[in-house]
Write a protein that binds this DNA or RNA. Structure first.
Lengths: 227, 227
DNA sequence: TCCACGACCTACCGACCGGTAGGTAGCACG
DNA sequence: CGTGCTACCTACCGGTCGGTAGGTCGTGGA
């Protein structure tokens, strides 16, 4: 099984189909989008579309793999070599939030929303690609906790808390809301990975932590939408 | 518009239909579930089902309102009168996580997953009920920050971080995983609302905070699934 | 000049979709 | 006994679903 399930490098046209289909599926959902509509949006007939793809499920699979490629290129590749685990997590959170908020790559949103739509091998393949990200986060949390850079936390709980904060954003973020995506990224990074000012509480340095508290932030009122 | 959009108190049968439909829609998605299937699961014909409901969309609307009722009864009502804002948030997080992990009330999961399926008035009505929860959380974060019980944080960012951590759980939690729902709840509460040990850093008491760091936790390996 | 091939098309398939018209069996009430 | 009502039923509607058979047409290489 290759990355896309179809022979790679068929050209720009194929990619354009994936992007067009992703736009529609992102808006209306997988089951709610007909092949007719996708074909029309590609300025083709349905039979013409089927010349390029095998069936609807394989199309979704290809879209998701494309989305994972984009994620790895725009998030993982920029942060995986950062030596400090906390800085690595901070940068990763920031990149990931911006990936979700900036509307390029509806494919990523589809991965998030249609988490249970695929079945069988295709489902397992995508789940496996996702799992590599979870492992990456768990490893970083584990290192950070071991070095006393963050509060001790089960790495799995840390990873999924991270992911929840970051990925839930797709459900409520509105580009014209009160908070910009930059503000959200900064705020969440500061909330989960606050700067540390001093260490050592009971003579065992590097494990306990006093966190700096800048005199700022607060405020009230929402500005954005539903949970 | 009443809570359900249908005349209230039609009896147990209606509730049973909502619960059965919710089970199917939760498994297969709203668009992926046919009225035929729902009717069959209720041991009825499709026409028989339509004797009780107006149409498919109104059925979803009723399910979501039922889910919001359950949420308010099982979460909000237990925590809204807790005086201390941080304790209120802690208890709320705990109750909400357990609401998601224990499989009673698929209706709640549907509210989470089908966040963009309804349109028009029904959508606005549900969004408004959700917003009341966001407001509740923002208020608590605002109070907690003002009292110096947590790091200063924009209340909206706090609320949606809370919600992301808690609600994302429905996408990955498996009852037979390494972590129990109790452990997840405890871990997330401790991560976002750590106990405070001392205050005062620069002579301005009640704003800064030193967090206690128990010598425990950590560990590695995942045990659960995809992000 | 010929022809193989990719990129589409028209026309169609059977299944199923959400929804309804109209009938009926059972029960409560007078 | 008759009437009215609820709770279903059978049978059907027009439309759309995912998918395909088979044809057309432009293009590039021999």
């Amino acid at each position: 099984m290759t990355t896309s399930g179809r022979k790679p490098d068929e050209g720009e046209r194929y990619k354009a189909i994936l992007e067009t289909a992703a736009r529609l599926i992102c808006e209306r959902g997988y089951e709610g989008t007909s092949m007719q509509e996708i074909a029309a949006a590609c300025r083709m007939t349905k039979a013409g579309l089927y010349h390029h793809i095998q069936n609807k499920e394989q199309l979704l699979f290809a879209i998701m793999n494309y989305g994972m490629d984009l994620f790895e290129e725009q998030v993982l590749s920029h942060v995986q070599d950062i030596a400090d685990p906390v800085d690595r997590l901070r940068a990763c959170m920031r990149h990931n939030i911006l990936l979700v908020t900036r509307g390029w790559s509806k494919e990523v949103i589809i991965i998030l929303h249609e988490h249970a739509t695929l079945t069988g091998e295709a489902r397992a393949f995508i789940d496996n690609r996702k799992k590599r990200y979870v492992d990456f986060l768990e490893e970083a949390f584990s290192q950070a906790a071991q070095q006393g850079r963050i509060r001790p936390v089960d790495p799995t709980i840390g990873a999924f808390s991270f992911l929840g904060m970051v990925l839930w954003v797709y459900k409520w973020f509105k580009p014209d809301g009160r908070l910009s995506d930059e503000q959200i990224a900064d705020g969440m990074v500061d909330l989960l990975f606050p700067p540390i000012v001093a260490a050592a509480v009971d003579g065992q340095p590097g494990v306990s932590s006093l966190r700096v508290v800048p005199r700022a932030a607060s405020g009230s009122g929402s500005g954005t939408e539903e949970p």
